[in-house]
Lab assay of single mutants.
Amino acid sequence: VLKALERTRQLDIPDEKTMPVLMKLLEEAGGNWSYIKLDNYTALVDAIYSVED
């Protein structure tokens, strides 16, 4: 979780936006981090930006 938060902080995305999206992605992935961690957490960042749209 810390590495995911560090990555999104680099992009000026607050933890308050990151955590709900991260928890949803983890739930959808059955707790499997490998998809979320791919390409420096690209799936997480993309999911956060899609929620903002």
Rank of each mutant, 00 (worst) to 15 (best):
L5Q: 03
I13Q: 02
E27I: 11
D15G: 03
S34H: 15
R9Q: 05
E52T: 13
T42Q: 15
K37L: 14
S34N: 13
L38Q: 15
D53T: 14
D53P: 14
A43C: 07
V51I: 14
E28Q: 12
P14R: 06
V1F: 15
R9W: 04
K3A: 15
P14S: 08
E52C: 11
L11F: 08
L22A: 02
L44T: 02
E16V: 09
L11A: 06
K37H: 10
I36K: 00
P14D: 07
Y49I: 10
V51N: 12
L26A: 01
A29R: 09
Y41L: 04
S34K: 12
P14L: 06
T8R: 03
D46S: 13
W33K: 00
Y49G: 08
D39T: 05
S34R: 10
A4H: 03
D53S: 14
T42E: 11
R7M: 07
D12H: 14
D46M: 14
N32P: 02
Y35T: 14
I36F: 03
V21E: 02
V51E: 13
K17T: 11
G30Y: 08
G31F: 11
D46K: 15
I36R: 00
A47G: 05
A47S: 07
V1N: 04
V1R: 06
V21P: 01
A4W: 05
I13P: 01
T8P: 03
V51M: 14
G31C: 09
S50C: 09
Y49N: 11
G31L: 06
A4N: 03
T18R: 02
L2A: 15
E52I: 14
Y35L: 12
I36L: 08
G31Y: 13
D53A: 15
K3W: 05
D15M: 04
L38V: 10
Y41C: 03
P14H: 05
I36W: 03
L2S: 14
Q10M: 13
P14Q: 05
M23S: 07
A29W: 15
L38S: 11
S34V: 10
E16F: 11
W33Q: 00
E6Q: 12
R7Y: 12
D46H: 14
M23E: 07
I13N: 02
S50W: 09
S34C: 10
L26E: 01
S50A: 15
E27T: 10
K3Q: 15
M23Q: 08
M23A: 07
Q10F: 10
K17S: 08
L38F: 13
